[in-house]
Amino acid sequence: MSATEYIVRTKDVVKVFTLGEEKLRALDGVNVDIRRGEYISIMGPSGSGKSTLFNAIGGLDKPDSGSVFINDVDMAQLDAGELAYLRCHTIGYIFQTFNLITVMTALENVTLPTIFAGTPTDDGIARGMELLDIVGLGHRYHHKPSQLSGGQQQRVAIARSLANNPSIILADEPTGNLDSKTGEEIIALLRRLNKEQGVTIITATHDYKMVDVSDRVIWIRDGKVEKIENRADIQLSIGGMAGEAEHLAGGETG
């Protein structure tokens, strides 16, 4: 487990969506290498293929060609059961729409992955409470998602993604449905988890606040990697924070 070991590698990943007659190459030969413990942001305008790349890395969708390696294992070679095992133990997912199960309490949502992993119920509940404490919601464990604010729901989702000690957390627009202050809290929380627990965090986002905390930023445009930058090199290229703020104020709802 050397520091330079790549936890995620993609090789010429191509994904084509067919929209009626038209064929859209959502991903067009993407090569990305991500090191263990990094905090990566995948950035790009809507429709640039961020989410498609996210789904490909997370094994939520099969690429049409090319391969994705997680810990040097080619995901295309795995059968459904092994994929489920990978999703259960190696990868934690966070979504823009939270995707909590609405009829379950916060604690039940967080313990759900431990049930899939076969953890004994008591251990699972202990783990769930511990995680809810980490995200600062320990006192609200018995609340249903509908009784929680968006930011709180997202924190439950983050706790859930950590349930089985994954080595990677994939977050698809984790701040997309949140106001910018709550968004910042979520970003800070992700950063803290990245530092304290050493999980690799990969976010697909167009929230410029993410850039600040990322180790590297992968810019995607029209299904291709435009450039990969280290954080130190980025400062100059984002003079547009004010513009982004306007964009956020105009474009966000809820």
Binding site: G58, L100, I101, P113
Partner: peptide, 16 residues
């Protein structure tokens, strides 16, 4: 369906 999708993301086996 969404719930099923979520459960799959969390590592539930199809058979489960």
């Amino acid at each position: 369906f969404r719930e099923i999708g979520t459960m799959k993301c969390l590592g539930a086996l199809n058979s489960l």
